[in-house]
Amino acid sequence: MKPRTKFLIGGAVVLGVAAYLMATSIEQTGVYYLTPTELSTRIAADPGFVNTGVKVGARVVPGSIQRMAGGTEYAFRVTDGTRTVPVVYHGLAPDTFTDSVDVVVGGRMGADGTFHATELLAKCASRYDNAPGAQKYKSTAGYKAAASHA
């Protein structure tokens, strides 16, 4: 066998193993990323979808965050504008977790209609000014003062 052929076989084996690892770990660790509306649509279509691990991306309803005694348990609601989902989360919340921020909660929807989160990521809207027409500055005191003078 020519060394070139041998190398190609070896390479195919390496790439095959890599592809196999990728495929299986996507199968095992990939999770659905849904909005509250998509989540409720899926549960309506397939009640067994309850208890499937998912991630839900939504915005925290202002004023809904309750912190339980002990400090590591939270109850709050998230919304995508159409659907609102109550969430309970046990763990440490990131600094960026406050009213009206976009969050990703990972966990499963309980049969009680509450989302039990084991993971809470808050996206920091101010880290990159990505949203088109982001007019964050309009909420600053400087802007309001200037606007009231004008």
């Binding site: 005191a141 802007y143 003062a145 606007a147």
Partner: peptide
């Protein structure tokens, strides 16, 4: 318009 202050940096 000219704001009195900017929105700052994280």
């Amino acid at each position: 318009f000219i704001p009195l202050d900017g929105s700052g940096m994280n």
